[in-house]
């Protein structure tokens, strides 16, 4: 069995590739769709289904019923178009980033990050950080905080996993969360993605020892998944509130319908002065997640 599925745009004939190894079966939706090779819409969920239903086939050539606009659209003026492009380009980050950066008037740059299921969300961030944040230096979404450097001191918002936090701790030459040496890096909002009880314990130990310091007014989201985390989220919340002294802690559930969307929206609201700024975002995310 080959691990790459090839998608071909029937208009421009450009090929896109989907690496099956990068798709976690855990994250795949269980909704069945037709076995037809014709994809109704080139979205990740559909690809997951193809993976399950055709996993014993070799490289497939699939017709798409929509054109890939990115191959023909160089100038992107509307967020909707950006989002469409993101989905249709098979999450090709470099293409998207380049397209966005070409459009200097794009008012909602950070929002492009919020479109995916969890698995893609991760890989998307990993790729994106290398290009996007180094250009904007405004907002950082990362699962590997150790890639941050002094160049990113204007960041307002950090998404990291405990794993990312641990990595930064183990790399003393790299920046640490809220390190005093980089005072401008103090985030307004942090999302902790609890997926490993080992990392949770280590993270809590480091907090207890004072090796990780969080600003009192930081808005923290603990995004949990009881299938993957052994620590009850309530215990973690109590720790953050009672022992660390945080004032704003959300426990949000990835497992719930729209749970990821809730994490994304809440994290975005946390950095807004006026929550209504996020209304357009909601509409867009609602249609894509």
């Amino acid at each position: 069995m080959k691990n790459i599925l090839t998608y071909r745009c029937k208009i421009c004939s450009e090929e896109y590739h989907l690496n099956l190894k990068e798709i976690s079966p855990i994250e795949a939706p269980t909704v069945n769709t037709s076995n037809s090779a014709l994809i109704p819409a080139p979205r990740m969920k559909v690809k997951h289904n193809i993976y399950y239903q055709n996993h014993d086939t070799h490289t497939m050539q699939l017709e798409l019923n929509e054109n890939y606009e990115i191959t023909t659209t160089k100038k992107i003026n509307k967020i909707q178009t950006i989002l469409d492009t993101l989905v249709r380009s098979n999450y090709d980050v470099s293409k998207i980033v380049n397209s966005i950066l070409e459009n200097t008037e794009n008012p909602l740059k950070p929002l492009i990050l919020f479109i995916s299921d969890l698995q893609t969300y991760r890989s998307f961030f990993s790729s994106l950080i290398k290009t996007y944040i180094q250009e904007t230096q405004e907002i950082c979404f990362t699962f590997k905080s150790n890639v941050l450097s002094t160049e990113h001191r204007n960041l307002k918002f950090i998404i990291t996993t405990l794993e990312g936090g641990m990595q930064s701790l183990k790399s003393p030459d790299k920046i640490k969360l809220c390190d005093n040496r980089y005072s401008k890096l103090i985030p307004k909002s942090i999302v902790f993605d609890l997926v490993s009880s080992e990392n949770e314990n280590e993270f809590i130990n480091q907090l207890k020892k004072g090796k990780i310091k969080l600003p009192d007014d930081v808005k923290v989201i603990v995004a949990f998944d009881t299938r993957k985390s052994k620590n009850p989220p309530l215990a973690i919340r109590s720790f953050l509130l009672d022992e660390i002294g945080l004032k704003h802690v959300d426990l949000l559930n990835y497992q719930d319908t729209n749970g990821l969307k809730s994490v994304i929206l809440q994290s975005y609201y946390n950095i807004l002065d006026n929550p209504n700024e996020g209304r357009d975002v909601y509409e867009l995310i609602d249609s894509y997640l």
């Binding site: 704003h248 802690v249 426990l251 949000l252 719930d256 749970g259 809730s262 929550p275 909601y282």
Partner: peptide
Amino acid sequence: ILRERREETHGSKTREIKIQLGDKEHEFR
């Protein structure tokens, strides 16, 4: 009320807040 549109709460949200009620200021979670 600032927010024009709301979404269902998926989990729990804890805030420490202060409110003024008459002469008293209450700080609570």
